[in-house]
Design a protein around this nucleic acid. Sequence first.
DNA 1: TCTCCGTTGTCAACGGACTGTAAAGAGGCG
DNA 2: CGCCTCTTTACAGTCCGTTGACAACGGAGA
Lengths: 228, 228
Amino acid sequence: MPRVLIVEDDESMAIALRDGFEYEGFAPALARDGEAGLRQALAEPPDLIILDVMLPRMSGLDVCRKLRADGVATPIIMLTARGQEIDKVLGLKMGADDYVTKPFSFMELMARAEAVMRRANGGAGAAALEAYSFGDVSVNFKKHEARKGGRPVDLSQRELQLLKYLIEHRGQVVAREQLLYAVWGYEQIPFTRTVDMHVAKLRKKIEGKADEPQFIVTVHRVGYKFIG
Amino acid sequence: MPRVLIVEDDESMAIALRDGFEYEGFAPALARDGEAGLRQALAEPPDLIILDVMLPRMSGLDVCRKLRADGVATPIIMLTARGQEIDKVLGLKMGADDYVTKPFSFMELMARAEAVMRRANGGAGAAALEAYSFGDVSVNFKKHEARKGGRPVDLSQRELQLLKYLIEHRGQVVAREQLLYAVWGYEQIPFTRTVDMHVAKLRKKIEGKADEPQFIVTVHRVGYKFIG
DNA sequence: TCTCCGTTGTCAACGGACTGTAAAGAGGCG
DNA sequence: CGCCTCTTTACAGTCCGTTGACAACGGAGA
């Protein structure tokens, strides 16, 4: 279970984040000011740090810089209030991996959290999903290959990424919006049917009967869910 | 326990609100005029502020604006008398999250309070109920799945939301009006049988005998109550 | 106990919202 | 230019939420 350190002084925001991460299967720890956050992060580096910019005792920017100076490589996401947008550049310069502007949806934060953690593990830990099989389908993401019943199936880049994300979240309902964040990298979510389109294509290629999907099922008014 | 600051000069109204919030599990604090309210809110920002518009020493609108100017992000609900409806727009412009016109039912205020607090927490906060079991039924809200006696049961989005709200308030009687606020997001409550309809559907799907409900019981002339 | 009226349960039908999918448009790359 | 993939558009089909009607029920008062 990945551990996340949340450094945030606003009580209700801190609670909300803690609950949210807990809900998503993280082990959250809280710190209420910059110094405490720094101490905790150094004592036992977590897998992810959520860092408010405005903090008592020591600003998030300083915490971030000191952590990096001490060789802590844990991914860091900064929380900034609107109007502190200038901090973006500064924050990234200080060594943050991403930043989110308040107010934000928890889903957005989560998608970014997944992204920075994946990036961080990209070189070393190889936490990325390499291959997966379900039904008569097998996919090798590393080699960019897929087979159904032994026969090779051509999947485009997007189709593969989409399938991978769905598989990585198998059993869970994934919202279209979430997919647009995670697979497409959209920041502003426009209204679009792109996701549906690609799901349809995927189904045609990997489902036995595309009109009775067995693996990628629709959850009306919510999104899609991978079963397998 | 969430903290609420009630800024209200009318003695009996203030007492009523304090008692009501206390009953609902809040830790209430009172302020009798605008300046006191502002001071208290700045000294120790609560999780929710109830702010009368007409106040001695400093109007609710001014309090609201100053709070926002000082970076206080706590959700604010304004209380306005009928005929001050013009304040609605003004209040929202000043940074209030919602407003309620006197006279109002406490239930209405409570429902709006829950709504703005949930919004402020980015949807993550109090709504962290992931799964729940009762009788031979198990529901996983995260996976959007339900089972009765091991068999999958199809629940629509609304049905699931309704069930979730009832379970989160298990043991309490929940009025139809309250459900329309919380589950449907209605602001103006029209006369409608929609809630009853959905309760009936839910009962058919999760109760053993739909005509002898065991889990979702009717409280005549009041609403519904979940037992489990 | 019986009656009456307001409240709740339930059915069927309508309509709107959501989804599936084909086909055209847009852009990149050799 | 031609091929490929991704995106948008358009339309049809499906799902589900809502409504109105009526039956059944509950509680209060005679």
